[in-house]
């Protein structure tokens, strides 16, 4: 059964996935977000300056003067003229991208500590930010006005995502708690047990793992959460990627996706594809991979090895273009379509 409500793009073929372009940025990358028109990618990396990369030619525009720390996530306005970036400085910065040099519109000290995750509601009006202070904050995307605060966890919020109807915002934290919150009143509506994504290693005495990836199916019937497990040596990068699939109707976990022969990896990002499969971006000591799964099977149905370890991934609205952020400073563009002759 497919949970996709999307029309299959012409030529869509995950087995034909290939890297179509790669563009070098200034520093090792942490995140990447594609705009609605599939023209640009915002990237943040191991420095305070986000960059906008033109997918077609790799031309880079720097967004300077907004942050004092690394940039961990970014979000686009629906019309691609503005964006918001978040960083380790706890700031949200709204940018106007219509002129040649990006203009800072608003700078908000939004969270205490890092803001690891941003997401935009399907109607483009509301921005959600999730921070190390355990809070989800909702903002008016248009003018940066705060709308609501949800105290979601006692620990770091790693990932947030809106449900396809925009009524819920789901959060995932360090401890493997996945919770859906009602956007209208901030109340908890569902809690999913994603504890396999959390590790406490007694010898090393560290909490580790967390919900690094989170994605609803377009029909909202499934929620996939990803991260790592088998963390036998968290401090030494020995852990494997894992995805958990929950039914939203009864909150039951129906599937555990594990990768074959990736002893060092984390799922950093999930995206559902038009054919009802899911692509997971795994990066770790084994390398960088795009792994494809179906919700009715435990095993990956395809994988694409990438040239370098990755840390984030996004899917363009065209359903065919994938951006990945890599440690070797490259933004890579993968196409789910046969190579042009």
């Amino acid at each position: 059964m497919s949970h996709s409500l999307l029309a299959l793009p012409a030529g869509f073929d995950i087995k034909a996935a290939h890297v179509a372009a790669q563009w070098k940025c200034e520093k090792p990358l942490n995140c990447c977000r594609i705009d609605a028109k599939s023209q640009f990618v915002l990237v943040g990396g191991e420095w305070a300056t986000p960059e906008r990369v033109n997918i077609a030619d790799g031309k880079i525009v720097k967004l300077e003067g907004g942050h004092e720390s690394w940039v961990f996530d970014a979000a686009w306005s629906a019309d691609s003229t503005r964006c918001v970036t978040s960083g380790g400085d706890g700031r949200l910065v709204w940018w106007d991208l219509t002129s040649e040099k990006p203009v800072k519109l608003h700078l908000v000290q939004a969270h205490k500590g890092w803001i690891r995750t941003l997401s935009v509601s399907p109607d483009g009006k509301t921005l959600a930010s999730g921070g190390n202070d355990g809070q989800i904050r909702l903002w008016n995307m248009a003018d940066a006005k705060p709308l609501a605060t949800i105290t979601a966890s006692k620990r770091d919020i790693y990932r947030t995502v809106f449900s396809p109807d925009g009524k819920l915002i789901a959060s995932g934290d360090l401890m493997g708690a996945v919770v859906a919150w009602n956007v209208a009143d901030g109340k908890e509506t569902a809690r999913y047990d994603a504890k396999p994504l959390h590790t406490y290693e007694g010898g090393q005495q560290v909490d580790f793992g967390g919900v690094r990836a989170l994605a609803y199916t377009p029909d909202s019937k499934l929620l996939a959460a990803g991260g790592l497990y088998k963390a036998t040596n968290p401090l030494g990068a020995v852990h494997e990627p894992i995805g958990l699939v929950f039914q939203t109707s009864d909150k039951k976990m129906i599937r555990q996706w594990v990768a074959n022969a990736i002893p060092g990896g984390i799922f950093w990002s999930f995206r559902w594809l038009a054919d009802g499969s899911l692509v997971g971006a795994s990066g770790g000591s084994t390398g960088g991979f795009l792994l494809f799964f179906k919700p009715d099977g435990d095993k990956e149905i395809h994988r694409l090895g990438l040239p370098n370890i990755l840390r984030d991934m996004d899917l363009a609205a065209d359903g065919l273009t994938i951006a990945t952020a890599h440690h070797d400073r490259h933004l890579r563009i993968t196409r789910l379509i046969a190579k042009k002759a």
């Binding site: 090393q204 560290v206 990068a237």
Partner: peptide
């Protein structure tokens, strides 16, 4: 106080530790 041997995710672990 243990453990600071952070070859992996140094920043997350130092945040905790």
């Amino acid at each position: 106080h243990s453990n600071y041997d952070t070859h992996n995710e140094n920043f997350n672990f130092h945040l905790e530790q």
